[in-house]
Nucleic acid binder design. Structure first.
Length: 120
DNA sequence: CGCCTGACAGACA
DNA sequence: ATGTCTGCCAGGC
């Protein structure tokens, strides 16, 4: 189970019409400070990775960070197609950010089992 | 293999 | 609010 795989799995779990930040993905992937690598992973997406809704990942400011790699326009188009309102200054995280309950976090996230109720 | 860069984020001045 | 520094790990060279 590599960081890469965890990132992809987490992103795949994001429901349509909702977005998450790189930081959130990094946290759920097991490395809260590896937000940067989330971008690296998504940048290296391949066919073999299956369908990954990478467009639902935005930066901490609710802005589109993919303009740097020329995927900004596409990302915005895909998000709008899902009903997400994306303005010239990005989107409003307060309205579109997806926050899954801690109980739904992946098993590899320590915080999810911090309560002390999980096994193995 | 080692070294450098990078779709970021949070802390600090 | 802006500019700088650091952490983190995948990829390209």
């Amino acid at each position: 189970m590599t960081f890469r795989e965890r990132v992809l799995e987490v992103v795949r779990s994001v429901p349509p019409g909702r977005v998450v930040t790189y930081g959130q993905v990094a946290t759920w992937a097991g490395s809260p400070r590896a937000a940067r690598q989330v971008g690296a992973v998504l940048f290296g997406l391949r066919e073999a990775d299956g369908e990954v809704p990478w467009q639902r990942v935005v930066n901490a400011s609710g802005g589109i960070s993919t303009y740097r790699v020329g995927a900004g326009e596409l990302q915005v188009a895909l998000l709008r197609a899902e009903g997400v309102e994306v303005g010239p200054d990005g989107l409003d995280l307060a309205c579109w950010r997806w926050d899954p309950p801690a109980s739904q976090w992946p098993w590899w996230v320590p915080a999810a089992g911090a309560e002390g109720a999980e096994g193995s």
